[in-house]
Write a protein that binds this DNA or RNA. Structure first.
Length: 405
RNA sequence: GGGGGGAUACCCGAGUGGCCAAAGGGGACAGACUGUAAAUCUGUUGACGUAGUCUUCGAAGGUUCGAAUCCUUCUCUCCCCA
C-alpha cells in the first residue's frame, strides 16, 4: 500500500528547507510501510485572521502531499494558542485575540483549508479541548521542560531583547503549548514554516519527556510578500489570499518583483520543475514567464479557465488600456447633487477612491483622475454626472456612475 | 524596593523653547518610462471647497508672548542594582 521510503522521501523533500532528522524520517517511513500503518502528520494552524494566504498555504500543501502518500493528516486548530499569540518571527507582542474571534476565524480557516486538503481524511482537533482542562500543576511541569537561556537563544526573542523591546512572559508559553499538542495527538511528523523550527524542536523534547519517540520536524520556506521583501502576512497586507477573486490574484501575482518568480513558481504553483526551469531560462521573456506564473497560481485555487480569463483581462486593462469587463457601479442620488452637479472631490470620495478632500485633490493635481478618458485637472470642478460615465483613478481603479434622480 | 533611560505621523526614526504640520528611510498613492500592479526615475503622503485656519509628538494638568521640546502627576516600557 505504501510506496518505498525512498520514493516517498522524494515527494516529501520537494520545496522544503530542513528535516530534523532525515534518518529518523526514513526509519519512520520504513516502519510504517512494514507495519502498514500510516504516519501521523501534524500541522497546527492558528486562526489569528480570517484568511489563509498562499504563504501559509505552503505547509498545508505539504500536508496534502502526505495525505496523497497515504498518511494521516492531523490538523490542529490552535484556538488556544491563537489566544496566546505566536511570537515567532515577529518583533513585537502579538495582540491577544478573544476566544470568540478565534473560533469565528477557525471556521473560515477550515473552509479555506478544505480547498487544499482532503478534509474527509483529516483528523481535526482543537487544542482548546485539552488546554482548557490542563491543571496549573501540569502547566508548571510543562514550563520546566525548557530553560530561560534556551528561550532567549531564539533569534526573534534575542533580537527583541537586545533592542530593548518588550517580551511578555506568556509568549514563552507558546512554543510549549505547540509542543504539548504534539504529545497529545501523538504525531510522528510535524510540519511548519522555518520560523516554527524552535517550536517544532520543543515538541520533540516534550514528546520525549512524555515517553514518546520524538516527532520528525519538517520546515517549509517562508514566502516573501508582494513587496518582495518582508514575509507574507495579513498584517502587512502584502499577501494573496487563497480565496481571492481570480483577477485580483492574477494582478497581485504580476506585481511581484521579477526576482521572486522562481520562489513563487516553486512554492505557489503546481507546475513541474522542468517546466519552471524552462520558463525561467533566458529564452523566455520575463513578462511571459510571470504571466505563466500568475496563471498557475490562479489555476491552483480556481480553475484553468479562470486563470486564462484573468490573463486576458489583465492584458486588456494594462496592455491595451481598455476598460475591465466588470466595473463596480456607484449610485449618484439626487441629494448628492447641487444644481444638478457634483463636486469632483465629493465624487471621488463617494466612489471610495479618496478618503479625504485632500486625498482627492492630490489625485487630481497629480493627473491621476479621468472621466470617460478625459483627464481632469481642475480640483474645483463641478460636473454634471452622466449615467454610465466611467471614472478612472490611477491605472486600475474604475467606477461606473449610475445616476438616480 | 532603589537608580537611570524611552514613548514622535501607517511603520521605523531625527528633532531638546519660536525658522516644526515636524528631517531621513520604509510603506502607500500618483506621474514618466516600459515588459506588468517588474525594475528605474520624479512627485505626493494630518484635516478643512484651496484660504488661512484648526487639531497632532503616550495621557492629564501647569510655566511661557510662544511647548514635541521646560515643570508636575499618571500610564506603558527598557536597562542597571537589590
Amino acid at each position: 500500500m505504501f510506496k518505498d521510503a525512498k520514493e516517498q522521501l522524494e515527494v516529501i523533500k520537494r520545496g522544503i528547507v530542513e528535516i530534523v532528522s532525515e534518518n529518523e524520517l526514513i526509519n519512520k517511513l520504513e516502519k510504517s510501510k512494514k507495519e502498514n500503518t500510516p504516519l501521523r502528520v501534524k500541522l497546527g494552524l492558528d486562526p489569528t485572521a480570517p484568511d489563509i494566504h498562499i504563504g501559509n498555504a505552503i505547509p498545508i500543501h505539504k500536508l496534502r502531499a502526505f495525505q496523497d502518500l497515504g498518511h494521516k493528516a492531523v490538523l490542529i486548530i490552535g484556538d488556544y494558542t491563537a489566544v496566546v499569540g505566536d511570537p515567532s518571527g515577529v518583533n513585537k507582542t502579538r495582540p491577544q485575540l478573544s476566544h470568540e474571534d478565534v473560533l469565528k476565524n477557525a471556521q473560515t480557516y477550515l473552509d479555506q483549508a478544505g480547498k487544499i486538503l482532503d478534509l474527509e481524511n483529516t483528523e481535526l482537533v482543537y487544542n482548546g479541548d485539552w488546554f482548557k482542562k490542563l491543571s496549573f500543576e501540569e502547566v508548571i511541569h510543562l514550563t520546566s521542560t525548557i530553560t530561560v537561556a534556551r528561550m532567549l537563544e531564539r533569534d526573534d526573542f534575542s533580537k527583541r531583547y537586545s533592542s530593548g523591546s518588550p517580551i511578555s512572559l506568556h509568549e514563552f508559553i507558546y512554543p510549549l503549548m505547540q509542543g504539548y499538542d504534539s504529545l497529545v495527538v501523538k504525531c510522528d511528523i510535524e510540519l511548519g514554516g522555518t520560523d516554527q523550527l524552535f517550536s517544532l524542536l520543543i515538541g520533540r523534547d516534550i514528546q520525549r519527556d512524555g515517553g514518546m519517540e520524538p516527532q520528525v520536524a519538517i520546515t517549509t520556506p517562508l514566502l516573501e510578500g508582494l513587496d518582495g521583501n518582508k514575509k507574507m502576512s495579513k498584517s502587512l497586507g502584502n499577501y494573496i489570499g487563497i480565496t481571492e477573486d481570480p483577477n485580483e490574484m492574477f494582478g497581485k501575482a504580476m506585481s511581484l518583483p521579477d526576482e521572486l518568480m522562481k520562489k513563487y513558481f516553486e512554492l505557489a504553483t503546481d507546475l513541474p520543475m522542468d517546466r519552471i526551469n524552462g520558463l525561467l531560462s533566458s529564452e523566455t521573456h520575463p513578462k511571459k514567464a510571470k504571466m505563466e506564473m500568475a496563471k498557475a497560481i490562479v489555476s491552483r485555487y480556481h480553475s484553468d479557465e479562470d486563470a486564462e480569463n484573468a490573463l486576458v483581462e489583465f492584458d486588456k486593462i494594462f496592455k491595451d488600456h481598455k476598460l475591465p469587463t466588470d466595473i463596480p457601479e456607484v449610485t449618484i442620488a439626487s441629494n448628492d447633487l447641487k444644481d444638478g452637479k457634483i463636486w469632483i472631490v465629493e465624487l471621488l470620495k463617494k466612489c471610495e477612491f479618496a478618503k479625504t478632500n485632500g486625498d482627492a485633490r492630490r489625485l487630481i493635481v497629480q493627473g491621476g483622475v479621468k472621466m470617460d478618458d478625459n483627464k481632469i485637472t481642475d480640483h474645483a470642478l463641478a460636473i454634471e454626472p452622466e449615467n454610465g460615465a466611467i471614472l478612472k483613478v490611477g491605472k486600475r481603479r474604475f467606477a461606473k456612475l449610475s445616476v438616480k434622480t
